[in-house]
Amino acid sequence: MNQYRFKRSFSADSNLSNKLFDLVEVVFPGLGELTECGRKLGASWEDASTPFIRFHDDIAVTHVGVLEIPMQIMGQAVTVGGVHGVCTRSEFRRRGYYREVIEEVLQYCDKRYQTLVLTTPNPDFYTPFGFRKLEEYVFKIRWDSQSSRDGFRILNFDDAKDLKLLHRLLETRTPVSNIVGVVKEKAVFCFNEGSRPLYYAEDLDLIACMEIEDTKLHLFDIVATQICSLKEIIDRIPQTIEEVTIYFSPELLDAGDIRAFPHLFDETVLMVRGKFAAEGEKFMLPRSARC
């Protein structure tokens, strides 16, 4: 048995990459499709993640990955370490492999980041290693709009122009919130959002990560060089909107009477280790940045 120690990228080692994704696909079926989607969008897991892998007879049995996420937290630029892809083959669990790997990960990260984040449905796996749970919130507002003009189109990533547009806005985006927002990050965004419809408003030069359910708008993220008002977004949706749920701090949306509610996003808990200046504030880490 041997431990494969960290390497900034494994994109040049297809053998290693294949072994890792064999493991990931066994533990998280379907995840391979999402990683392939990010690859096609020019923001691959392999280029962004530092892998920590435990092998048994040349088979990858445990993995913990580390990504860098450039964020703005309470108005300050912070590069956060994102812990992701944590998994162990079922037949190799309860042998101490996860503890061995996560302890090496933390030694690596403590030299580089003041803050680590992760999202998980199993917080008890991480509390022994200094991670703590943070409460998150969704933000709701009643709305009264009639059918408006159709100001959005869905991006087509088979079109090189739309792909270039996505990269330009991700590289130059302003944080969606001054409380907790993300800047200049591609890999996590493309993994989380690249298989979903992304809506582009040309006159606003804005990408909206959103879903519409009957007359309810769910707004998950905005990628733009300048954040516009919520009204400007809704004015470009060609149907009646009666309620809006926002999955990030909405203070930049100029939207009036928005109410905050504690919320467990997709049954996952946000956990942090180290400093986190927004602790105690009402916020949510956007879906596009969750790892």
Score class of each variant (00 low, 15 high):
residue 48 A to K: 09
residue 49 S to V: 13
residue 49 S to H: 08
residue 51 P to Q: 11
residue 52 F to L: 15
residue 55 F to E: 14
residue 55 F to T: 04
residue 55 F to L: 15
residue 56 H to L: 08
residue 56 H to K: 11
residue 57 D to F: 02
residue 58 D to I: 00
residue 58 D to V: 00
residue 60 A to F: 04
residue 62 T to E: 09
residue 62 T to S: 12
residue 64 V to T: 09
residue 65 G to C: 07
residue 66 V to D: 03
residue 67 L to M: 10
residue 69 I to R: 08
residue 69 I to N: 07
residue 71 M to N: 00
residue 71 M to Q: 11
residue 76 Q to I: 11
residue 79 T to P: 00
residue 80 V to D: 02
residue 81 G to I: 03
residue 81 G to H: 04
residue 83 V to K: 04
residue 83 V to T: 05
residue 85 G to E: 06
residue 85 G to M: 06
residue 86 V to Y: 10
residue 87 C to S: 15
residue 89 R to N: 02
residue 92 F to Q: 00
residue 93 R to E: 07
residue 94 R to C: 09
residue 95 R to F: 14
residue 98 Y to T: 03
residue 99 R to K: 15
residue 99 R to A: 12
residue 102 I to S: 07
residue 103 E to V: 14
residue 103 E to L: 14
residue 103 E to N: 12
residue 103 E to G: 05
residue 103 E to Y: 08
residue 104 E to L: 15
residue 104 E to K: 14
residue 104 E to F: 11
residue 104 E to N: 12
residue 105 V to W: 11
residue 105 V to H: 09
residue 106 L to K: 05
residue 106 L to M: 11
residue 106 L to H: 06
residue 107 Q to N: 13
residue 108 Y to W: 15
residue 110 D to L: 08
residue 110 D to Q: 12
residue 110 D to W: 10
residue 111 K to S: 14
residue 112 R to E: 07
residue 115 T to S: 06
residue 121 P to S: 13
residue 121 P to D: 12
residue 122 N to T: 14
residue 123 P to G: 08
residue 124 D to S: 12
residue 125 F to S: 05
residue 126 Y to R: 01
residue 127 T to V: 14
residue 127 T to Y: 06
residue 128 P to Y: 09
residue 128 P to Q: 06
residue 129 F to L: 01
residue 130 G to P: 03
residue 130 G to W: 05
residue 131 F to Q: 04
residue 133 K to P: 00
residue 135 E to V: 14
residue 135 E to N: 09
